[in-house]
Amino acid sequence: MSRQRRTLVPWLFILPGFGFLLLVGLYPLVFTFVTSFERYHLDTIYLGTPFVGFDNYIDSLRSSLFIGAMLRTGFFVLVALPVEMVLGLGIAFLLDRPRNDGLRAFTRVILVLPIATTPVVVGLFGALIFNTQFGVVNYLVGLAGIRPVDWLGSPTLAMVSVFALQVWQWTPFVALVMLATLATIPVEMEDAFFLESNSWLKRLRHIRLPYLIPGLTAAAIFQTAYMIKLFDMIYTLTRGGPGESTDLISLQMERLSFRAFDAGQAAAESVIMLVVTLVLSQLYIRFFYREPEA
């Protein structure tokens, strides 16, 4: 086999996979980008899809629905993410190196259950749990002598309900990532630390945090992206209501695309959100991500 052919062979092997990736990854992205510059109404597509320049982007940035949904999504991430991180970290510390291996295995299974539950089902269960008349939350509230609370009918409480279900479902994910990260800390390093100090805070700051930060950054990026595209759970719980109180950006885009059939503007909104997600990811990496020193 000539040298030239030997160089070519590896490329031939990766070509099918590369082609598949292009097809399923790049094509929709390019299609969305192109569509965002067109008047692309699904219900009147027979009239053509003329190029409209930046009109869809301008309309999006002028739309109170889009700006409102963006702000709501931002607020949701800002509140839910730190809570998930703190609770997840706390659970990980509690479960780290317990004496009982059986309990440890059991709790890890318990942690996987919420993550494994389909978001649609979480939303449906949520609708039952937070039901004003028959819900278990109001039953518990009633035991304390408080009148039934209208969880899903009040704009503020509906958002609280969405927030509670999000934290319930995804805090275990942060906890599992943190548990895995804690397992990477060399035992010798911690043992050496104990020779000098018993302080839990100092141990956290000087030994554990440097190892935890890459995991925390990864979990934060993953969760931020997830919350920005959060759709199915809210759709089945409140469908973005009451009014637009739980209308996060993905619900707004779905409504625009498949109810008002304005796929052009919805594509423009998608591109804007893609840019926001990429910028946020870069910010996380720049400001939080640190490789532990060897």
Binding site: L65, P155, P242, G243, E244, R259, A260
Partner: peptide, 21 residues
């Protein structure tokens, strides 16, 4: 054919009126 768009507009502001927003 434009009714789905008008329906979205009506339902958005209609619910906000109902909520007193």
């Amino acid at each position: 054919p434009e009714w789905p768009q008008l329906s979205e507009i009506t339902s958005n502001w209609g619910t906000q009126i109902e909520l007193g927003q």
